[in-house]
């Protein structure tokens, strides 16, 4: 739900302000890759209606955001292309290699799924780099990134709960480790987010 909230915040910003200033297209494209490689089981592994609908929402909203940033006349002009310089392959290639080395089963779907877990953990990096270069971070963008970080942190709590409370729950070290790293990457952002919130000041990251 927090993940869904983050997407709503981002779409709200882009749609109402007709601006994507401070939003990293690189992170959005990495997330698109994460969802495509993870949800290849969309039609073969039915978990629940909720699960299926959420998968479709995550996939379509990410592509919608990318379309907005690349294709929409006004939104496109507000994109900080010169600042959003992170290279995709810096993250994609190491994650692919890691997925080929560390996975639970050597099948195409499983390796791609593992790759998506690793890539998700680091997909925020281009966004954090851009954020550091952005002088005026608007509230919606700040809250968007906060929710994006918070959902993985909440997963950590959920994993602990499931581990102790569910009979048929199996340890999933790859997901747990990646989730911990993903949350740790946000630690610095969370610190400044709460600091600015407490002081009632505009969010600003130190250079």
């Amino acid at each position: 739900m927090t993940h869904l909230a983050s997407i709503c915040l981002l779409l709200l910003k882009i749609h109402t302000m007709k601006s994507c200033a401070g939003v990293s297209l690189k992170t959005q494209e990495l997330y698109a890759l994460v969802f495509v490689t993870r949800y290849l089981d969309l039609f073969s592994n039915f978990v629940s209606m909720y699960n299926t609908i959420m998968k479709i929402i995550f996939l379509s909203s990410t592509f919608g955001i990318i379309w907005y940033m690349r294709g929409h006349k006004l939104v496109r002009q507000s994109y900080d292309k010169e600042q959003d310089t992170f290279r995709h392959y810096f993250l994609v290639i190491p994650c692919m290699v890691l997925a080929l080395v560390i996975h639970s089963k050597f099948t195409l779907l499983e390796v791609l799924w593992t790759f998506s877990i690793y890539l998700e953990a680091v997909a925020i990096l281009p966004q954090l780099v851009l954020l550091q270069r952005t002088r005026n971070i608007d509230n919606l963008t700040g809250n968007y990134i906060f929710c994006l970080g918070a959902y993985r942190a909440l997963y950590l709590l959920n994993w602990i709960y499931r581990y102790f409370m569910e009979k048929n729950y199996h340890a999933q070290w790859i997901t747990w480790m990646a989730g911990m790293i993903q949350t740790a990457i946000y630690a610095d952002f969370f610190y400044y987010y709460f600091k600015s919130w407490k002081k009632n000041e505009r969010l600003k990251l130190p250079a």
Partner: peptide, 10 residues
């Protein structure tokens, strides 16, 4: 061998 976790998360 550790049992594989069911893929029920998003």
């Amino acid at each position: 061998v550790a049992k594989e976790a069911e893929k029920d998360e998003l």
